[in-house]
């Protein structure tokens, strides 16, 4: 069974009296362990699609199943729970909590979302810190962009999600750092079996992605692939 199954999903935004379509009937499937990218120009619907996959928004029509669950009708609390249990996020601006150290940023989903025991958390967080090559005491304001994104990747993976959604994860990184982060994500995928889905127009990601979906004007130009 595919990790993600999207069938004819549409998304309209209400602007004044007008319904503006952002996605116009998209169908695709993505399997376990994918390293896939949604690419396309600005306004093509990449971010909208990523929001739907991340259960941050609902499709206007169509069905969307993630990890075997129809996520198109989840309530606010159900969606939060689903995200906390099955999804990880990596953001363009890293979005670390500035008052927390690297360790605490990584620990946050386990403590505040999953409620793991201290011993279990410690073991898991240290494993992730080792995996991304960070030290635990650093604060975000003491880290470089690459280090912040490493911590963000570790935070996304610490809860062992099946899927990590990354919105332009290399946009604010220099060339070498961007490659190191992409390689890190690939290693993580290989080590933990987690699927990575990117929204990007960064050629580096497009080259590294094993499956690429091209979006244009809310329509999928390359449809229905299973990685």
């Amino acid at each position: 069974m595919a990790l993600i199954q999207a069938t004819n999903i549409t998304k309209n935004y209400r602007v004044g009296d007008l319904d503006v379509p952002a996605l116009k009937g998209i169908s695709f499937a993505i399997g376990e362990g994918a390293f896939a990218a949604f690419v396309g120009p600005s306004g093509s619907g990449k971010s909208t699609l990523l929001n739907l996959l991340g259960c941050l928004d609902h499709p206007s029509s169509g069905t969307l199943t993630v990890h075997g669950r129809d996520v198109s009708t989840l309530s606010r609390n159900e969606a939060a729970r689903f995200r906390g249990e099955h999804l990880g996020f990596v953001f363009q601006d890293f979005n670390l909590v500035p008052v927390l150290s690297a360790y605490e940023n990584i620990e946050y989903p386990l403590l505040m979302v999953r409620g793991w025991s201290p011993e279990k958390r410690r073991e898991r967080v240290m494993k992730m810190i080792d995996a991304v090559g960070m030290t635990e005491q650093e604060r975000p304001d003491q880290m470089s962009g690459g280090q912040k994104q490493r911590v963000a990747v570790a935070r996304a993976l610490v809860g062992e999600p099946r899927l990590v959604l990354a919105d332009e994860p290399t946009a604010n990184l220099d060339h070498d750092t961007a490659y190191r982060i992409l390689n890190l994500m690939k290693t993580m995928r290989d080590d933990f079996g987690t699927s990575f889905i990117f929204s990007t127009h960064d050629p580096k990601i497009m080259n590294e992605a094993e499956l690429t979906f091209v979006l244009e004007d809310g329509r999928l130009q390359t449809e229905g692939g299973v990685a």
């Binding site: 953001f91 946050y108 989903p109």
Partner: peptide
């Protein structure tokens, strides 16, 4: 606001 969005995105319940 962005931090709140991040915490919500990574699964923090509204009550939390």
């Amino acid at each position: 606001i962005r931090e709140i969005g991040t915490l919500a995105a990574i699964g923090t319940q509204p009550g939390k």
